[in-house]
Amino acid sequence: MLMQQILNGVMLGSTYALIALGYTLVFGVLHLVHLAHGEVFMIGAFVGLQVVLWSGGGSLLAIVAASVAAAVIGMLIYLLTIRPILARKGHFLAPMISTIGIGIVLQEVATRTFGAEQVGFPNRLEATAWHIGPVTVTSVQLIILSVSLGLMAALHIFVTRSRMGMAMRAAAESSVISHTLGIRTDRIILLTFAIASALGGAAGVLVGLSFNAITPYMGVDMGIKGLAAMLLGGLGNIYGAMIGGMVIGVVEVISVAYLASSYRDAFAFIVIIAVLAIRPRGIFGSTHHVEG
């Protein structure tokens, strides 16, 4: 029983982690909490659904299409609603307010386009289930776990092995030092939005598959969970976001299983508040930003 709950929690948590990674990547390079990220995730879910409905394709095609669409939307959000405001050097909250605004716009566009009702993914996947000792794993669960863990591994390899990924970390640590190395940080920021949003879009499809219910408002709840997962792990810390997401997923599932299901979110956030009270900079600590 407990093993099964932990597995379910890790599965849910891995989607939170994907969303949290988006927040943390953007926070790393811009020191900005990108509050439309939940809506990018929601758009990803809808694009994935439409692709499956139109093409009759499988969930992997939906994930790829959702990631691409989300990446484009993420870059447009940066170019149209964040960069012009940052360039004016106004109040530090102004760009964040702007992201709230574009988030609401995306929500309403999605409501007008897709309707406000909850819709589900067509169940084309064979609902195969494997029983390994006390644990049951379904094919949907396997897809969610392997895709999200695979994306996290790919991100890890990108930021530690490729020059572009290292440049992204350099830009997050100090834009002035990066410039002296010839790193064009404006392009790196755009790339960061593309990657962050693609991860969010993929998560949208994964959540759609696991709950089989998507709505234009799903980005609000999931956005807050992702944000909380980032805070829990430590602002701007990639590995913190991964662990933070997993912790929230497991706590949530276990509280549903052993306590009252109507308190699932409350319990998850009580744990977050408790952890932050003990470690205000998150489990792994925030990255230190050094301006040269």
């Binding site: 970390r169 350099a170 640590e173 100090s174 002035v176 030092i177 002296t180 990255t287 040269g292």
Partner: peptide
């Protein structure tokens, strides 16, 4: 740059 401008992380 002045002052140990390594990328410390």
């Amino acid at each position: 740059l002045e002052g140990r401008s390594t990328l410390k992380n």
